[in-house]
Design a protein around this nucleic acid. Structure first.
Lengths: 225, 225
DNA sequence: CAATAATTATCTATTATAGAAACAAAAAAT
DNA sequence: ATTTTTTGTTTCTATAATAGATAATTATTG
């Protein structure tokens, strides 16, 4: 039961709240959302500001600061800049929403999404959303990319054998997901990533599997080594 | 004398330290660098981890987490809302395509563009396109914004002396670029940015230089501190 | 299998923080 | 012009949260 620190937690929450307000947010409102006294919000802001993670515009509204880009540039720089065009292609080819997810402890997190342009309905998959590794095509694909273990679920074993995972309705009723592990990412940085698509039940899964596999190989090559 | 919060400050410092270790860092070493007891480092890590800003690889070493990309993806839109109006003004005043570029390792990347409304031909400059820092007005402007080095090219030295860089045909035949470093951004946040314009050979360069310089100052104020 | 390292859990003194309150200054409304 | 509201600082104190130690537990490694 590893405990967390309240003050740090609140600060990070503040960062998140500011990030969610594109138009900026006032300190008063931030305090409200954090459910803390105004004074505290000022102190939190001052601290985040001193690390350039937050700035205040003339009007006094808060916005994310440039320090974010520095952190971001140190986080696996290639992956995202390189991957977006490829994801768009994948989305078009499969007529489904394409994504990249990263392992994060026992969860996996969606970090990049490309939606298909055509099609009446499309499945939205929000960047930043997280779910357990044991659920959904993405998580299973990541587990399948790891060394085999006793306790692997049948699905994971299957995915490891097939080179892809396919799930139906695990995260959302009526949604199908196909994903596969991106090789080589792990060895270099310890990061574990997968690429895949989600769609309604009408997904052409044969094709999706093929395309997702190709994308994974291309990504691995692009990222290098 | 707006005070800061120790716990939050340490947490953010931890984030920075981890970001500086490409190969990852152990908790023990992190504690050392933070000059806190190991126990505290564990709590800091747990908190950062719960926000997906940090992960631990199999080996137990710490790395930046996927949550960074989420914040980063929200930083750019916020920068844009603030900077775009200014870029539009710049584009209009110079009748050229105005841009902001950020340093990204050894390259620089275009993150925001505003095209002039009038004029027959306009130079398109694609957001996301990258080129080496050593080439083109933008890259040279960024290098000129750094502390002087022995190995600086004559162009960089010139740009540093002049307060702007002007290149012809380096990235594209027949194109002229003028750019200047946005001051004050680097020191705290680590971000290195420049603003500039590109146009065909017919650019009124005197005017462009003047306008770009003004924009840089204004942006410095907008972006923060 | 010992020995070392990594991790988690428990505990208490004390410090850092929370939160209030009071105050000044600037905006907004009257 | 003068209230009223909002925004930003400062000071203060109770207390809760944190720091840091110690110890117990679990992995790793030679």
């Amino acid at each position: 039961m590893s405990s967390t620190l309240q003050t740090l937690d609140r600060g990070l929450l503040a960062l998140k709240i500011v990030s969610e307000h594109n138009e900026g947010i006032s300190i008063a409102k931030l305090a409200e959302e954090l459910e803390v006294h105004r004074t505290i919000a000022y102190r939190i802001v001052a601290t985040l500001e001193s690390h350039a993670l937050l700035t205040r515009t003339q009007g006094g509204t808060l916005r994310l600061g440039a320090g974010i880009t520095l952190l971001a540039s140190r986080f696996e720089p290639q992956l995202h800049t390189v991957a977006l065009p490829l994801l768009k292609t994948l989305a078009k080819a499969t007529r489904a929403t394409a994504f990249i997810s990263l392992a994060q402890g026992e969860e996996c997190m969606v970090t990049l999404v490309a939606e298909p342009e055509e099609g009446m309905l499309r499945v939205g998959y929000r960047v930043g959303s997280r779910h357990p590794l044991t659920q959904g095509a993405a998580g299973i694909a990541i587990l399948a990319g790891r060394a085999p273990k006793e306790e692997d679920s049948p699905e994971v074993k299957q995915a490891r054998a097939d080179g892809y995972s396919l799930t139906r309705g695990q995260l959302q009723r009526g949604a199908v997901g196909v994903a596969t592990h991106i090789p080589t990412t792990q060895s270099r940085s310890g990061m574990e990533a997968c690429v895949g698509v989600v769609a309604m039940d009408d997904l052409d899964s044969e094709r999706a599997i093929r395309e997702v596999k190709i994308s994974a190989i291309q990504l691995a090559e692009l990222i290098g080594q």
